[in-house]
Design a protein around this nucleic acid. Structure first.
Lengths: 331, 331
DNA sequence: CTGAAAGCGCTTACAG
DNA sequence: CTGAAAGCGCTTACAG
């Protein structure tokens, strides 16, 4: 049998409602009594009963995160940050890898106060397959058109890549390639390509000096292969923008293996502003929403929509910024 | 306000305790009444209150899984299977990526009926940092020396690799290399190396014809590099055993790029018996515990230790088997 | 087969 | 500041 507030009350010689208030740090309880009760609770190893608490308070102080799969570095790091940010705000976090709708149903059953949905590919066509639930939903990157308390946090990918072009041209580069998934199935990838082309135009690159290389995917392997493909060229760009973290890592390895020095022979800037870029053979300059900020905004936005009882719909677009490291040099 | 059994009771013209029994399919309720109530519940979109249910029943019918990180294919696939298996047994699954102790504390607070712990590296030295909790714990691969209801499910890695050696020698191979993480920090990796050496001895390979190649890690990249390193050799083995899924994939790519044909020039067998091996450029023969079986045993064992109220300690070692595909040929 | 009652462990007006 | 009481939404003996 577990320790309950009644046990504590008996030992402290007060009523159990006083114990409840004391443990919740109510101003209605004398500091002295509070201290005494806190000590007793500690001693007895009291653990509040989550079920009872959320039954009566109608809140669980816990949020659920829906993940498409468990396989991406950047996502994994972001989830870690969100976990930390929400902990600071008094929330626990649990995850599910079910698909969004079943996961949302589960989280609703478990009485989560809110849910965060990550999903790469929006449900094809059928928008009725989107998440429908009564609890507040925060989508990252893809709109799920949900209930009445709903928000979307996303990165300005197009601007980010454009910014990378600006940065590279400002260093004197006039022949730049973008390496990324350009298969066209995913909007988010297309945005980046568009950003590259707009940037190339805006910052005065000639059409032949702004190349888009389709990597066919966003993994290390795709990056590596794209790097090797690039090496076949007779005329190389002086700078490359890679569209995702793993891609960047694989690409870097390939060009280094091919005998190029980064940044002496080739400048490189990678999308996805994650600290892991600093750990590569050459610390790679990043463009994108800084991970810390991403995590902080996600947590803050979610807490916000959970707090409101009125319907809310909000969209937050995050600006990218450049994190300079050692992979770019002047031309 | 949500629908409760009282609402249903009112509309059905019965008491709410009858509704409760009906919804739980109690034999004490007339089939007719049951049906009527079920329909009504359906209609009203009734969702039982998880908090109330677990408060009174002292069980949540939910289990928590602790994962070290979110980055491994084989792990991700296994979690998916466990999810499915437990669903069939009436349990929901949630995940946490906190480190084992905080995760266990969270799951205990959330009143999970049991937890599964995956962890690669056992807590260094200090065994007091292991998971301590009152609820049943099932560890995968690493013992966490927990409470009174505790189980360990693990794979017979050594036997698995040995079996791979047997298989290859039976095909006529007499020069075999094992490629794997041999840095020595991780017991599980060492077991595989030992299995290889024992197998080599037992199946009569000469010492120079049984090579251990340290890949320095278990990722695609490590596999790729190990593959390229192998190609530098003047005398190649006729068969290779790779120690982990991603490693296998990277290795295969490297040797193919180097102009070797698998299996014509080189036979390959990969540890980690996951279906993804069938999706590689060459469908790769696997050795290891079949994913389906792994998932089934984990789910069944967990349900078992959750059901018992007496202390239980159990260890289940799973046998590996070979899944033949197209990557091995006779010599 | 059905219903009234107690109780799971807590929070929160309300009265003192 | 403290306590008695009601109630959150359910399950489960117990009595009919």
């Amino acid at each position: 049998m577990n320790v309950t507030i009644k046990d504590i009350a008996r030992l402290a010689g007060v009523s159990y409602s006083t114990v409840s208030k004391a443990l919740n740090d109510s101003p209605l309880v004398k500091p002295d009594t509070k201290r005494r009760i806190a000590e007793l609770a500690e001693q007895l190893g009291y653990q509040p009963n989550f079920a009872a608490k959320s039954l009566v308070s109608r809140r669980s102080k816990t949020v659920g995160i829906v993940l498409p799969s468990l396989e991406r570095v950047a996502l994994s790091a972001l989830v870690g940050r969100i976990n930390g940010e929400l902990a600071e705000r008094g929330y626990d976090v649990i995850l599910s890898t079910l698909s969004p709708q079943p996961a949302a149903a589960l989280f609703q059953r478990l009485r989560m106060d809110g849910i965060v949905v990550f999903e790469d590919i929006p449900p094809e066509g059928r928008h009725d397959s989107a998440v429908t639930t009564d609890i507040p939903v925060l989508s990252i990157g893809v709109s799920h058109m949900s209930g009445s308390r709903f928000a979307l946090v996303d990165a300005k990918r197009k601007e980010a890549i454009k910014e990378a072009v600006r940065y590279l041209t400002s260093l004197g580069h006039s022949h730049i390639a973008y390496v990324g998934d350009n298969r066209g199935s995913d909007n988010k990838q297309q945005e980046k390509v568009t950003g590259f082309l707009e940037g190339a135009f805006e910052y005065g690159l000639s059409p032949v000096s702004a190349e888009v290389l389709d990597s066919g995917g966003n993994t290390w392997k795709h990056g590596f292969e794209a790097g090797r493909a690039l090496l076949q060229r007779e005329r190389l760009p002086s700078a490359v923008i890679t569209g995702a973290f793993d891609l960047t890592a694989g690409f870097l390895r390939a060009v280094q293996d091919g005998g190029l020095d980064v940044p002496a022979n080739l400048s490189l800037i990678g999308y996805d502003n994650v600290p892991q870029l600093a750990e590569l053979d050459v610390p790679v300059t990043a463009v994108g929403v800084p991970l810390r900020q991403y995590g902080r905004v996600i947590a803050a936005t979610l807490v916000d929509i959970m707090a409101s009882d009125a319907p809310i719909r909000r969209t937050v677009m995050l600006d990218a910024c450049i994190e300079e490291r050692a992979s770019c040099s002047k031309r």
